[in-house]
Nucleic acid binder design. Structure first.
Lengths: 268, 268
DNA sequence: ACTTGTGAATTCGTTCACAGCA
DNA sequence: TGCTGTGAACGAATTCACAAGT
């Protein structure tokens, strides 16, 4: 059934079908006290993207940037970008654009990046080891303050100057070093237990690489990065392509299809 | 059933001038074909999660499972799960539940997992190396068919039985081995070029780990995994906690809050 | 003239609640 | 008595389009 309930909306533009989406994440709070919740959740994820672009621009000495340009570089549409920025109480200058350094500072402040966040990484296996060695963390304000594992062969070794300690030490070490973010890179079977320890140690934000849904008490934020899921979503699209469309010739520019089609990438 | 989608606008104009874009997209516009293909995008990502749970259940010999149980294990609410399954034309049995093995097969079919998808991984640095060694890929039907890098020190080496070849070989090798999915794990500066090569080689699905927005032609699907973004989103939540709300210990079960899943996790 | 900021329209996604069937 | 499947209410996110500054 379609439709037509009461009011008749006005329809004017062509029904453009574009599919946006993102797996979005968690909803931000709400919760009790009700401190008005600005910053719409989906916006938060994009702010991080804008920040990267801004940093690049800053490095290039750009003084101001328009929403159009910034949006293109971030791969989003400009109206969305402006709305996003409006949520953080931004202030660009009409007719001109945004001051790059000021906007950078505002975004950083919103994301809570004005001070570093100590990170504890649990599970120094294949992936965990790579993450520990990945400079990106420390570089962007997330110093790896502790590493844990249960494997006796790993405990005691050092990665990038940080010693691997036994997972049993999580509570003590995390408390001592003021860890605020935990990264779980253990096998699925161990993830929940590790998560429980982190939570007990006061960690309220967790990035989970283990292929499991973690159960956590309210107030703890979990973000999940699941490679298998990503691959399977791509698989879906590969399969989708064979689904229909008798491949009549091949249209190069099939509108409405999948793709990310910005005009130009940021870097390079 | 019978959703009659009344007015079918049929065909839209090409969004010529500006193409906004984003990642993830699905819901295929149906094009002109007949069978409108639903599967709402957001649903696709969750199907992969359900699949993992189903696989576990299958391994435990469970014959049937209710939407309530499956949903709990997957960390979603049961109504959502049922709606998701309805999109893939599922059929559970009222009063009973879903047949585990049948549902597993249906989900796999929908995700296009009935046959393996050859993967090419470009960038065998820190992260790339870990990904290459990560058994999860091959295990779940995504055999790593090729590895590439530009570093002479890496080219020629072997990881898990697969030789690292020079990135210049991407076109030839990908075509030869029927690669359908590309994984970009290079530094940001090289990502776009690598992406272009993959696309030229016919790869239409790309998983991007590089911190850059990739520009691709329509028809190519890009999914992005950005660690910095994940960390920064968590940072936002850490900061949020200090913003206000004296964090007095409060009600445990506040629905709609931050957390992922109260209740119980799948494993363990 | 140009670009931001934003109300309003629209689309997309989630949740409710119940009819329908084993 | 369950539990599924789904219309319909609801809510979140996106896009439009234009008024408001500069």
């Amino acid at each position: 059934m379609t439709v037509d309930r009461g009011t008749r909306p006005t329809r004017r533009a062509v029904p453009s079908t574009r599919t946006p989406g993102e797996q979005l994440a968690t909803a931000v709070p709400g919760e009790v006290g009700d401190t008005a919740r600005p910053v719409p959740a989906a916006t938060v994820a994009r702010l991080a993207v804008y920040l990267r672009v801004l940093t690049t621009l800053l490095g290039e000495g750009r003084g101001v940037v328009s929403s159009e340009e910034l949006a293109a570089a971030a791969g989003v549409n400009s109206a969305k970008l402006r709305k996003d920025l409006s949520h953080i109480g931004s202030s660009g200058v009409r007719g001109v654009g945004y001051d790059v350094s000021r906007l950078t500072a505002e975004v950083e402040a919103t994301l809570g990046l004005t001070r570093p966040h100590a990170v504890a990484l649990v599970g120094v296996g294949n992936l965990g080891h790579a993450l520990a060695g990945y400079g990106g963390f420390a570089q962007r304000g997330f110093p790896v303050a502790a590493l844990f594992d249960v494997d006796p062969a790993l405990v005691g070794t050092e990665i990038d100057g940080v010693e691997v300690e036994h997972a049993a030490e999580i509570p003590r070490v995390c408390a001592e070093r003021g860890v605020t973010i935990g990264v779980v890179a253990t096998p699925a079977a161990a993830a929940q237990e590790v998560c429980d320890h982190l939570v007990a140690a006061g960690v309220r934000s967790i990035l989970n690489f283990a292929p499991t849904v973690l159960a956590v008490p309210a107030g703890v934020e979990v973000r999940k990065v699941d490679l298998a899921v990503e691959m399977q979503v791509l698989s879906f699209h590969v399969a989708r392509r064979h689904g229909s469309v008798p491949a009549a010739g091949h249209a190069p520019a099939t509108p409405g299809t999948t793709a990310t089609t910005p005009r130009e990438a940021v870097t390079r």
